[in-house]
Amino acid sequence: SAVVMEEGSPGEVPVLVEPPGLEDVEAALGMDRRTDAYSRSSSVSSQEEKSLHAEELVGRGIPIERVVSSEGGRPSVDLSFQPSQPLSKSSSSPELQTLQDILGDPGDKADVGRLSPEVKARSQSGTLDGESAAWSASGEDSRGQPEGPLPSSSPRSPSGLRPRGYTISDSAPSRRGKRVERDALKSRATASNAEKVPGINPSFVFLQLYHSPFFGDESNKPILLPNESQSFERSVQLLDQIPSYDTHKIAVLYVGEGQSNSELAILSNEHGSYRYTEFLTGLGRLIELKDCQPDKVYLGGLDVCGEDGQFTYCWHDDIMQAVFHIATLMPTKDVDKHRCDKKRHLGNDFVSIVYNDSGEDFKLGTIKGQFNFVHVIVTPLDYECNLVSLQCRKDMEGLVDTSVAKIVSDRNLPFVARQMALHANMASQVHHSRSNPTDIYPSKWIARLRHIKRLRQRICEEAAYSNPSLPLVHPPSHSKAPAQTPAEPTPGYEVGQRKRLISSVEDFTEFV
């Protein structure tokens, strides 16, 4: 048969007729292969192709491409040299491709048809291009793949890379869960390890502090508590009631339409708007009261037996805890006409967050109470924005700035309102402590230090009264110190430094 060459192609190359033996071998191979691939376009007849790359030819070592076609129900084999250009295909004639002069020997084609199974398996396991790669995943090629499931790999992101949580363990979102698992493993320790309690022994800490320079003076030496005195035992138990972190309780009120001037209507609300609910979820963490331990979680007086509701929101960081007394989460009882059960919590909070959804101005004093010092007013606006402002009593104007209003988005509203309420509550605590000038409020841990110092002074006084020969370590507060001759004046800087060093040991009130 003659071949018409394309323009620009090399000279004529004689194409030899395939021997009958080659056709029989390739026909047997075509019957084993699956003929249901995917359909081509209507211009080209339905056909199945599979590209198999052999590394070497037997005796020649030339890479070839073998295409199996099922045109007219008769499979045909096409061998081509890759750099050459194939002729145009037609549905009426068999596929013809040019070969190099080196394939002119018909014996070479017979060798190609009689490829060993080793070469076929190696060509099938190679990388296939384009559409033949999808075909190689079918059941027909499963014989050339190794048996057994593939090893499982770690989760992959859409980009093909490992997620960040699997790369950096410290930033993994499941870090707290692993800590819980470690605690569970520790709890399952053997009885021999049960006595080993991690941490620092208080006796060891005391020993280090006792021999430090801070205890060089007799006034700073630790003293032993009497065991037989019940009054001192009660004082030590009272110390446990003062937490070592700051605590805040903040009221949250929802004002519906037409309720801006009605205290009873505001306290009777059992739910609010959708934006109000989203605002609550951002204030803190939802907790169930019956599962809380009052000595570990500050509840601000809420009952854990269901008297004040089942849930509330709280927030904490390293040095403070805040609980929100939310009116809509507290039960509304029919027998309580004046809502006294709610007001006994909300009316005693220094700061209230008022979500004013009424469309009218909310005035300070609508919720009557002796300790309502500051109101954080949240007014929802259009386009997911809110107006946040402050209202306070006249005696609080020096501590709280009420002249600045803020426009905040719904997303950042819980954070801004919480921070403003916490700052206002700190100012309210300082303002409330002014009624007792001898006990200015600095912080909870300073209050613990003052309680310890008062307890020490009482013990020293009782020891001096029981044994008059012992001198008083600290003179009583009601006694007057003996007159001392004025010492020589020293520079102001040295006096300030000495006073600062003494105050650092005794108390921190002056620095606050």
Rank of each mutant, 00 (worst) to 15 (best):
Q391H: 07
F362H: 03
Y254T: 00
R500C: 13
V351N: 00
Q241E: 15
T438M: 06
A483I: 12
D382W: 01
D341M: 14
P476W: 10
K480S: 15
G272C: 02
D336E: 12
S443E: 09
D295E: 11
P437R: 05
M420P: 00
T281Y: 07
I242G: 05
C385V: 05
M320A: 13
R411D: 13
R448C: 07
A322L: 13
R500T: 13
A421F: 00
G492T: 14
L264G: 09
L381G: 03
Q370A: 15
A447W: 11
D291H: 13
E494G: 15
G301A: 12
D410E: 04
Q293R: 13
I242P: 08
L364P: 15
G258V: 02
D318L: 05
S443M: 15
L381D: 03
A447M: 09
N386F: 02
L253W: 08
V430R: 02
E233N: 12
F415V: 04
I367E: 03
G258K: 05
D382H: 05
G306I: 05
E288V: 09
H338L: 13
A463C: 14
D410H: 01
H431C: 09
G359I: 02
Y313M: 15
E257C: 06
L280Y: 12
N436T: 10
F415K: 03
G347L: 15
P437I: 07
R285K: 14
Q310L: 15
D410C: 00
D217K: 09
E288D: 09
E288A: 12
N372K: 03
L449E: 14
R456H: 12
H345D: 06
M330H: 07
V495C: 14
G258M: 04
N227Y: 10
W445Y: 06
H325Y: 06
R418L: 04
Q370D: 14
G272S: 02
P471H: 07
S428Q: 04
G347W: 15
K444G: 15
T277D: 08
D303Y: 03
K337L: 14
Y355T: 01
T312Y: 06
D217A: 08
K342M: 06
C305T: 15
Y441Q: 14
T485W: 12
Q457W: 08
R234F: 05
F311Y: 10
N372T: 09
G398R: 13
F232S: 07
E462T: 07
L224E: 15
S244W: 15
Y355L: 00
S389R: 11
I440Y: 07
C305H: 09
G300T: 07
Q484D: 12
M420S: 05
N412K: 04
S262K: 06
V416F: 07
P222G: 10
T438C: 08
V505M: 10
E307R: 15
K444E: 12
V495T: 14
K499W: 06
S479F: 09
I326K: 03
T247E: 15
Y383A: 05
S409N: 04
P468L: 10
P226V: 15
R456M: 05
E360V: 11
R500L: 09
D308H: 08
Y441W: 09
H431T: 07
E228K: 07
E494V: 09
Y254K: 00
F324L: 02
A251K: 04
Q230P: 11
D357K: 01
V495K: 15
E257G: 04
I266H: 03
C305Y: 11
I326H: 05
L299H: 15
K333M: 10
F279T: 00
D240T: 04
T366Y: 03
H345P: 05
H345V: 11
Q310D: 08
L472C: 15
V495W: 12
H375L: 11
R500D: 14
E461W: 14
G272I: 02
E288S: 12
M396I: 15
K249N: 15
M426F: 07
K363P: 12
I502L: 10
L399S: 06
M330T: 05
S504W: 06
P471Y: 07
P437V: 06
H316L: 06
H451E: 15
F371K: 14
S219P: 13
E218K: 09
D395V: 06
D382L: 04
V252D: 00
V378Y: 01
D439R: 08
T490N: 11
P482K: 08
S273R: 02
F311A: 06
P491L: 11
I319T: 15
I353D: 00
T328M: 01
F311V: 06
G309W: 08
A405Y: 11
A251N: 03
V323Y: 14
E288R: 09
D341A: 14
S229P: 09
T247K: 13
D291I: 06
P294I: 14
Y276P: 01
K406Q: 12
L501P: 14
N412I: 02
T328I: 00
A487H: 12
K480W: 12
A417G: 01
P226G: 11
L239P: 08
Y245F: 10
T332W: 07
K343G: 06
